[in-house]
Each structure stands twice: as C-alpha cells, then as structure tokens.
Design a protein around this nucleic acid. Sequence first.
DNA 1: CGTTTCATTGAGTTGAGTCAACATGGGTGG
DNA 2: CCACCCATGTTGACTCAACTCAATGAAACG
Lengths: 243, 243
Amino acid sequence: MIDVQNPLLSKLSAFATLTNSERASLGRFDRPRRCFEIGTDLMREGEKNSTAYILLDGWVLSYKLLRSGERQIVDFQVPGDFLGLRSLLLRTADHSIEPVTPIIAVEIGMTDLLRIFRESPRLAAAMLWALSTDGAVVVERLVSLGRRDAIERVAHFFLELGARLKVVGLATGDGYACPLSQYHLADALGLSAVHINRVLRQLREEELMTFRAGKVTFDNFDKLVQIAQFDTAYMDHGGAARE
Amino acid sequence: MIDVQNPLLSKLSAFATLTNSERASLGRFDRPRRCFEIGTDLMREGEKNSTAYILLDGWVLSYKLLRSGERQIVDFQVPGDFLGLRSLLLRTADHSIEPVTPIIAVEIGMTDLLRIFRESPRLAAAMLWALSTDGAVVVERLVSLGRRDAIERVAHFFLELGARLKVVGLATGDGYACPLSQYHLADALGLSAVHINRVLRQLREEELMTFRAGKVTFDNFDKLVQIAQFDTAYMDHGGAARE
DNA sequence: CGTTTCATTGAGTTGAGTCAACATGGGTGG
DNA sequence: CCACCCATGTTGACTCAACTCAATGAAACG
C-alpha cells in the first residue's frame, strides 16, 4: 500500500527525512482508492463539500471555464500532488478538475488532515510546505501570463514541469513523457493552439527542445533555461529547509 | 491592542464566529508591531528565513522581477491580509513585498503559527481558510491574464478589490479609496500603463466606473459585473462554511 | 473505412504595445 | 513666493505579437 504512495513520499522527503512512524501515518489513508477515466470530472467548480485527493498515478488538470466557453487551465497535477485541497478548505470548489489520462487517486477528507496535524506536526509542516510549493507554481505561471512572450512561456512551462516530475522520479535531465495536447498547452498558457504549434516548431528548429508524440526532449537545456529565465529556486527549497 | 487587529478579526469572522478565547489568542501576538515607509521592502525574493506579517493598516504589493527589469505584481494586500506566509513555509521567499502606502504590520513567526494550531484548531481552520481565499484570488487573476481582454481585466480587478475591502469595512457598494497608480494596475494586470489609461477612459466614458484621484466609483455596478463576468462565489464562502 | 481528434501551415486581422509629445500638480529649494 | 522638477496621467500615430479563419495531413478508433 505504501508502495503506491511512493510519489507523495518522494515529494515530502524532499522537504524532510520522514521517520518510519510518519511514513506509516501517511500510509494509513484507508480511504477508498479511486480510478477516474478521461471525461469524468473529479471536481466541479461551485460544488459544495467536495472531496480532495492525493494523486497516485496519471495526470489531471485544474481549470476554470468562462462564459464564452473558453477555459483557463490553472495547473496540471502529476503523481504525488494534492488535488482540490483548497476547495476542501473553502468548502466550495473554486475550480474544476478533470483527468488528462486515466488516474488512480486516494481520497482525503478534513478528518484525515486533522489527524495528521494532531499525530505529527512535522508531517503537517511537510504538507503545508508541499501546498506552498503548489502556490509558488501558480504564481510563477501568473508571471508567465503577465510578462513573458510565447516562446518564454512555453520554454518555462516545460522546464518547470520537468523539475516537478524529476522530484517524483518521472523525468531525467534530458526529458520526460508528457501526455498533453497542444490544446492543453494553449489553455494553460493563455495562447491559441495555432500559436502554440508555431512556437513548438520554432523551438524544434532552433534545436532547443522537442515536444512530439508525447515526449519532451531537451536539446539545449542551458540555452532553454536562459531563454525562459528559469530559476528553480522557487521549487527546490528542500535542501534549504533541512537544518 | 485587539482594537488595531480589527481587520483580521473582521475577516476571520466571515468564516466562523470566534469565541472570546479565540479572539484573545489572536490578540496575543506580542511580537513587535512595525511600520514601513514607501521604498523599504518588507521582503525580498530569495531571502531566507523571512518574517511573515499581518497587515493592520495601509496597502502593500507582492511582486516578482524579471531580468528585463519588468515586474509582475502578484497581488495587493489590504488591512487584515497575511503577508509572506507562503515564504515563511517555504523558508525562502519566492516573491518580494513592498508598501504601496506607509503601513503598520505585526510580525508572525513559525512559533506563533504552531501555537495557534495547538491552542485552537478552529482558529487554525479559519486561518487556512483565509490562506485558501488568497490562493483563490491569485487563481482568478491567472484567469484574467490568460483569457480576459483589457476591459474585462480592469473591471474584474476593481470589483474584486471592492469585495475584499468590503469584508474589512473599507468599501461600500458604491466605491472605495484606492491608492494605486496606473503603473501599479499595469504591472498587476499584464498591460502597459498607456493601455490602462485608455481602458480607464473607456470605462469612464461608458459610465461604468471611474478611477480618479485615488477614488474608485462604480457608476453602473450591474453592467460592470456583467462585463467582467464577476462571480463572488470564490470569495464569500463564509456563509457556506458555517454549519 | 468513415469519423474524430490532433497537428500543421498560410493569409489576413487586431488588441495591445511602443514611442513620443504634452499636461497637471504636489514638493522643494533658492 | 516663484521656478523648477519629477512623478503621474493623457493622447495620437504607428508597429507587431498573437489571433482568427481556413484548409489540409496524419494518426487513432470504434
């Protein structure tokens, strides 16, 4: 059981080395493990008393719809990430969540949270840290949408995703598997799908990176980092936090 | 002392009615009360072990700088808001904070947080709720930058700010005092100051709202709400949360 | 195999940016 | 008390990054 929770353990371990009892405490989510197929939302904006989850396998996206039918993808979540914790605290979901691929997730409720806070303040701190990291990612996306042009945005996006996947062992320094479509990228980065396509071509032709057939390959990592002004500082506070 | 903390009390009271002992617990922040003038940052991106604050009076802004010298303002904070809590949890500040007006703030440290969590889970829940609301605001701004045009963005911004100020008694339904410059708006909404100016003119000429001499006036609130597709749902979960 | 979804490319359009000039008004030092 | 400064606000003329529309492949699928 703890086996499947590896992604979350990997992530929290980046913050602090967990004791056996803390690992056990995490493993004691005996709430149902659920699977969702593409097309079935895990959560709907406006829904009351929604359930939160820990994502064990697969990718999901969080989004908001506009009246015009357009959507803005707030973020993608990968294994080890929390889903809908904010909505749980707000008691009304402020965004929707849908699978990108078929997924496996464990439910968590308010009672589980409170239990963790009671049983292990250290674990609670690790979880708050993980939540804060999610917040930092959203803020960084905000900067992208506000002040970066299309190439910088796309480059930054793939670098950040790579860094997140690396933490849970799903990426190497060279690239990673990525199940997103160009429409996903467009809705996440505030661009049109057509323009995303042109930008991807440019990145490919300039031999910076390649996104094709569900695979991301970094052809010139350093130059890409420079173009995107990518700074990992907001993501890997792990080392700094251990003292 | 509790007197000055009214803005935070007003805000948390929107989530749950607080008992006297909970109010007292909040009041027991005997940490220094500090004043900051315009031009002195409260926090710098990258700084380790920064201090967090509760803002008692005045306005501040949270921002990130880009290499090009441009900046993206992440959000403005008004009395009753937390400052830099995420940076406290991350142990390294992921953004900078500077005053918009001279301000008064109370320091909070990790120990204060832990004490609150220990002494009053209810208060802790209220604080997590307040934090979640901040997150929801950032997400809503993300949607603005990604998928709303300039007029919608500006309209949405002023409506949201109004809603937030109303919670702490600093706005009426008709308008509020707002110390921001057009440059602030530009950096927050991902537009140029020149374009902000044109949009404000348009809003004025179409008798929707007026922003002049530090005052926001809603001339046609309903139409403005309609244009901005403004939905307060993500802000006032207060009623829903009481049960 | 049609159908659907995703990717690709060209041609023309536009919202917002840039540059540049000028207005206004509070603040400050001579 | 005046003169000047500097930050903020305003407006016009021109440019451009990204959009829309449209057509066409290519692969995936029941």
